[in-house]
Nucleic acid binder design. Structure first.
Length: 255
DNA sequence: AACTTATACAACCGCATTTAC
DNA sequence: AGTAAATGCGGTTGTATAAGT
């Protein structure tokens, strides 16, 4: 693919936006929308590249953007989501209404990371290949019985963490029997982990208990996956298990 | 007051992915 | 199916301002 010449070579402006430029962009998008970012600056009469316009709009001018300091609650949410998702700023931003990926990235690097280090809780560094998993629609995690609503992941998780603990409890570690088939296998995307972790603590992960690999049923037993072990430990365990199985090479590429 | 260093945040760059043809 | 263009994303940089010396 041939890279488009950079803004400067095209005689386009770079650097901070003036209030006049902002107004032109706002007016244009309010009137015509932003169907084609590449064409937009020319049509709007801006000496900017489309990319610059898109960034300015997405990070600053969009009307639903919440300005001002992050609340303590928002910061806690970012920390929690970062534990689950790593540096997937856009995924984190998707769960914080009114906040942009760029803003979250900045607040992470300037405040939150340092705060965690100060409190002897260095941030988990999830390998980037974990965080760049192919995007796919969430797929149900298999449980005893498929829920009636096949698109609702959260109902799966709650059934794993609550419903199963009664009949399968074993030394505080619940094992869930999973009937395995290739197309039922969980997609370990952000939604999958988010649903898992948003149930009560990482105990939920050990509650998954079993997973099918190579057409066999495998149990994740203590001490391999302990209740209370970290998100990353669990991800690593599952990743290694899946890698060894060789069944999902493009879902989770080698580290 | 002048200078240096640290911090915060907007914007850019380049790669990856998706879309259109 | 292949290719180019468009878009999205995450890492990095640039710059204004605040804090410290």
């Amino acid at each position: 693919m041939v890279r488009a010449p950079c803004c400067e070579k095209m005689g386009l402006k770079k650097g901070p936006w003036s209030p006049e430029e902002d107004q032109i962009l706002i007016n244009y998008i309010n009137l015509y929308g932003h169907g084609n970012w590449r064409a937009l600056p020319k049509l709007a009469g801006l000496l900017r590249c489309g990319k610059s316009c898109r960034l300015r709009w997405a990070n600053y001018l969009k009307p639903d953007i919440k300005r001002g300091n992050f609340t303590r609650e928002e910061e806690e949410t970012i920390i929690k989501l970062h534990q689950m998702l790593g540096n997937r700023w856009s995924a984190i931003a998707a769960r914080l209404p009114g906040r942009t990926d760029n803003e979250i990235k900045n607040v992470w690097h300037t405040h939150l990371k340092k705060r965690l280090i100060r409190h002897n809780q260095p941030p988990i560094n999830i390998p980037s290949k974990f965080t760049r998993i192919r995007e796919e629609p969430p797929v149900n995690f298999p449980v005893h019985e498929q829920p009636s609503d096949a698109t609702d992941c959260s109902s799966d998780v709650s059934s794993l963490t609550t419903g199963n603990s009664d009949d399968n409890n074993n030394n505080n570690h619940t094992h869930v029997k999973v009937e395995y088939s290739q197309d039922m296998f969980p997609q370990m995307d952000e939604d999958f982990w988010f649903e898992v972790l948003s149930t009560e603590s990482s105990e939920a992960i050990s509650d998954f208990g079993a997973v099918g690999v190579n057409q066999e049923l495998h149990y994740l037993s203590p001490p391999t996956v302990e209740a209370g072990s970290s998100m990353h430990d669990n991800m690593e365990f599952w990743y290694n298990l899946l890698s060894r199985s060789g069944e999902l090479p493009d879902l989770l590429p080698d580290i």
